[in-house]
Simulated scan of single mutants.
Amino acid sequence: MVEIKHLDDYALVQKFVDGEHECLEILITRHKNRIYTYIFMIVKNHAVAEDIFQDTFIKVIQSLKKGRYTENGKFVSWAIRIAHNLIIDHFRKEKHLSTVSNDETEVDIFNSPKFSDMNIEDNLVSEQIFREVRHLIDELPDDQRQVVIMRHYLGFSFREIAEHSGVSINTALGRMRYALINLRKLIEERQLNLTLS
């Protein structure tokens, strides 16, 4: 018999619905980084991100128990859609749709093994570059910003981006193309040097 933690998402969902509650814990553990990172990249506040993350899984549990999961193996995209709707609700409540906080973004979300061998000065420069790029991304139109975050920060494929956004793959690719054109323009206008010397 296959060990429970090796089952795919759809099988775990079915077993959870049938009463095996530890299956949900496996799903949360499997996808928590991706879902939490998605939330945090938009709200930019750890406490708010934690609250929305918890609310997401409360809603996931409620929806599963009511038989509202029909995604057939796309659990993470479905959970991120729930999180996205809760993020929108949060901003509506806060009336901050046009003034999203730009408070310091903690660097740990950008950590990458390829930077582990750098010295302190290189680390400081790379952190500054990450911050500047993140601020530039915030200036993009919503649809372009969303594609950049999903592709480069969350590792979504263009197919997943298209499914999540409810658009065609060509539209998702087009948004990425325009996002990159707009980022290049902003970099040139501000004469930014975004390379490690």
Rank of each mutant, 00 (worst) to 15 (best):
N182F: 01
A162D: 14
A11S: 10
M176D: 14
I120Q: 06
D18V: 01
E50F: 00
S157P: 02
D55E: 11
R184V: 05
T37Q: 05
T70P: 00
D9V: 03
Q144T: 00
G155Y: 02
V2T: 11
T37F: 12
I149G: 04
N45H: 05
A47C: 09
I39L: 02
E50K: 15
Y178C: 14
S197I: 08
N111K: 12
I88A: 05
V167N: 09
P141V: 02
K185I: 15
A172M: 02
I187R: 14
L173T: 13
S168W: 02
L180Q: 08
G155H: 03
E71K: 13
S63R: 13
D9E: 10
V133Q: 03
E188K: 12
A83M: 05
K44I: 09
F91W: 13
V133P: 00
I28C: 02
Y178I: 08
K44M: 06
L86G: 01
H96I: 14
A162L: 13
A179M: 05
G67H: 10
N102M: 06
I87V: 15
R30E: 10
Y153S: 15
L154K: 15
V100P: 03
V17D: 04
Y153M: 15
I137C: 12
I161R: 02
L64D: 14
R30T: 14
K65Y: 04
